[in-house]
């Protein structure tokens, strides 16, 4: 049995390596010290209305009630376990805001996710792993989805016209009224200056350091891409 936990079983950390009690306590302290925390958690009736409202709870072994309870009880073992698994099963729809006590389990999860990412937890790396390509594409082109992703047989449920559009993509795009949409490898034309601004926003908001914690390789590539552009703009970070 651990120091202040009510759990009477071996902590389940979703297959990840377990860490010391002190480390878990530190992570929870970081969650709790977030300025939003006191507005997101009052007291829990354990009534389950949040679970009843939660779409994720219908598909996963996920419960916003358990999130609120674990936080209210300051059960650092369970909170760590949730940071390694449960919090990534939330769709952040905030249906749980119907709590009669005014709790916001989804908001607690927002904070827990940020702490997971900022501390490079394995679960954060796994959950965000699939986004590396998207982040790379946004940083290098300024857009995420591009017309050339529309392969003839990739989206059969979109109907028979999809094939025709993708076969004559350049022509279809040129038919669009705005010049900036006459592109096929990006969603629209993005200027170099916009890419620099985007990079600066990510840098100053901490998004870049989150990316560094979760995927240092990707972070190095982004830095390399931007190096010359920043130099052209005369910006030093």
């Amino acid at each position: 049995m651990t120091q202040s936990s009510a759990i009477y079983k071996v902590p389940d950390v979703a297959g990840h390596t377990d860490v010391s009690y002190e480390e878990k306590a530190r992570l929870f302290a970081e969650v709790k010290s977030d300025v939003r925390f006191s507005d997101y958690l009052y007291g829990c009736y354990e009534c389950g209305i949040c679970v009843a409202a939660c779409p994720s709870a219908r598909f996963y072994d996920f419960s916003p009630r358990r999130i609120a309870q674990a936080a209210a009880r300051e059960d650092v073992e369970l909170i760590y376990q949730q940071m390694q698994e449960d919090i990534w099963e939330c769709s952040q729809c905030f249906s749980c805001l119907r709590c009669p006590r005014g709790n916001n389990p989804g908001g607690i999860i927002t904070i827990m996710r940020e702490v997971s990412i900022n501390n490079g937890l394995n679960s954060a790396k796994e959950a965000l792993g699939g986004y590396s390509r998207i982040i790379y594409k946004i940083m290098s082109t300024g857009t995420q989805v591009s017309p050339d992703m529309l392969q003839p047989d990739a989206f059969p449920d979109w109907g028979p016209e999809t094939g025709d559009v993708s076969n004559n993509l350049d022509l279809w795009r040129r038919a669009l009224p705005s010049d900036t949409l006459h592109t096929t490898s990006t969603g629209w034309d993005v200027s170099e200056r916009t890419l620099v601004e985007l990079y600066l926003i990510w840098f100053h908001t901490g998004a870049l350091s989150m990316i560094k914690d979760v995927d240092s390789g990707l972070h190095a590539i982004l830095q390399e891409i931007m190096e010359e552009r920043l130099e052209d703009e005369g910006i030093e970070l």
Binding site: M1, A6, I7, Y8, K9, E46, R65, R66, Q69, L78
Partner: peptide, 12 residues
């Protein structure tokens, strides 16, 4: 038993 969490408990 911590019934809403669904687990037995022993506390000092």
């Amino acid at each position: 038993e911590d019934t809403t969490m669904g687990r037995p408990m022993e506390l000092a």
